[in-house]
């Protein structure tokens, strides 16, 4: 269980040192509170995939070089592989599973199907989380902008032209 080091007191602030063994971590994911016992070194990605059975975010490189693990933390797209799960306590994590209500599809998900914006599908959750954020950020103005601001999500099947088409379709519907 939680190994707790001595509280450091400096200028009145007490810091709780947790780990290195498993510690209790509260994560809010897709609006649901989860309690996990994990080592501090566990990444958000591994917490989602191996502990919470939320396997939508993918592990493609574990090095911040492919974008397949893209999720939102407090509404911003980030890479779950380079985020330690513990740093997300007190923040809201959104994964592709939480993008739309149970049994429903977000319009970006529908557009990805309609434009055939994927083949193997492995990078797709990351692409979609990026694509929705892209439009909210205001970076979907034209194709050049979409290209640049979607370049953090590698699609090895190279569905890029179709991904852009899906994004355009959602953008233009808005």
């Amino acid at each position: 269980m939680s190994a707790r080091g001595p509280a450091l007191t400096e200028r009145g602030a007490a810091l709780e040192e947790r780990g290195p063994g498993p510690v209790r971590v509260r994560l809010s994911v897709n609006g649901t509170e989860h309690t996990l016992d994990i080592e501090p070194r566990v990444s958000l990605l591994d917490a989602l995939r191996e502990r919470l059975d939320l396997t939508g975010a993918k592990k493609g490189c574990d090095q911040g070089t492919c974008g397949a693990c893209t999720v939102w933390v407090d509404g911003r797209r980030v890479l779950a592989c380079l985020t330690l799960a513990m740093t997300c306590e007190g923040r809201e994590v959104t994964t592709v599973e939480g993008l739309a209500g149970e049994g429903e599809l977000h319009e970006m998900q529908r557009a990805f199907i309609a434009e055939d914006a994927f083949q193997c599908g492995f990078c797709t959750p990351g692409q979609i989380m990026s694509a929705v954020a892209l439009i909210e950020e205001g970076h979907a103005g034209n194709d050049a902008e979409i290209k640049e601001w979607m370049s953090g999500n590698i699609c090895r099947c190279a569905a890029y032209p179709h991904i852009r088409a899906a994004i355009r379709a959602v953008r233009d519907r808005a």
Partner: peptide, 10 residues
């Protein structure tokens, strides 16, 4: 490697 973690407030 195993690590411990603390979150600083100031």
């Amino acid at each position: 490697r195993p690590i411990t973690y603390l979150r600083a407030t100031d």
